[in-house]
């Protein structure tokens, strides 16, 4: 039963073009902005949009990190979607950053001071900077050109994910569960990778 379900899912994946994911994944960005403009996000639309974009970025990053373990442990092959998930993550991080710069803080001197002085912003900003080269090299030409170095470079996503989750925990007031859950999921997905390597070595 499980096996046939898995096979069917894998077959289904082959028929879903990746542009569908790009379109569906990007839709919440203009939709949230529209809601913010028309009062659909409540009294404080700036914070609401800022938080939703940040959360979506973290969710897409987590989804992209789940691809490899899902193939290895569940036999579900979604690798063709990984680039889209990663780029969507970068898209939402950029939106998140833009909202913070333009709609939230607004004042340039304040922005620079915040990046240096506020640890949670420093951490978030670092995460963004780590994702930047990954977004730039998310194309076939770069993969060919960089060869093995491409894989090494893209391990920066692990660091970016941890920093992203820490950024979220750090900005929460009081003891809050949700940001901790994000960090736990990130660490779990990374832990699965740590255990893979010795096992592979044993086999070979």
């Amino acid at each position: 039963m499980m096996k046939s379900l898995k096979d069917q899912l894998n077959k289904l994946v082959r028929f879903v073009p990746t542009w569908c994911l790009y379109v569906l994944g990007a839709l919440p960005a203009p939709w949230l902005f529209y809601l913010g403009l028309t009062g659909g996000l409540g009294v404080d639309p700036v914070k609401a949009i800022e938080h939703r974009y940040g959360e979506l970025a973290l969710q897409f990053l987590i989804a992209s990190l789940a691809i490899t373990p899902m193939r290895r442990f569940l036999g579900l092959n979604l690798i063709k979607f990984r680039r889209a998930l990663g780029l969507l993550c970068f898209f939402y991080v950029s939106c998140h950053l833009l909202v913070w710069l333009v709609l939230d803080v607004q004042i340039i001197a304040q922005i620079l001071k915040d990046i240096i002085k506020r640890p949670y912003i420093t951490v978030g900003m670092t995460s963004f900077l780590l994702l930047l080269p990954l977004a730039v090299t998310s194309n076939n030409a770069s993969i060919r050109k960089l060869g093995n170095r491409w894989r090494k470079l893209h391990r920066l996503a692990y660091v970016a994910a941890v920093l992203g989750a820490v950024h979220y925990i750090w900005l929460a007031k009081g003891f809050q569960i949700e940001p901790l859950v994000y960090l736990a999921v990130v660490l779990f997905l990374l832990l699965l990778r740590l255990r893979l390597q010795p096992m592979r070595r044993l086999v070979s």
Partner: peptide, 12 residues
Amino acid sequence: SQGSERVLGGGL
């Protein structure tokens, strides 16, 4: 920073 504030009710 506590130097400035977002005045709520003014929209996006």
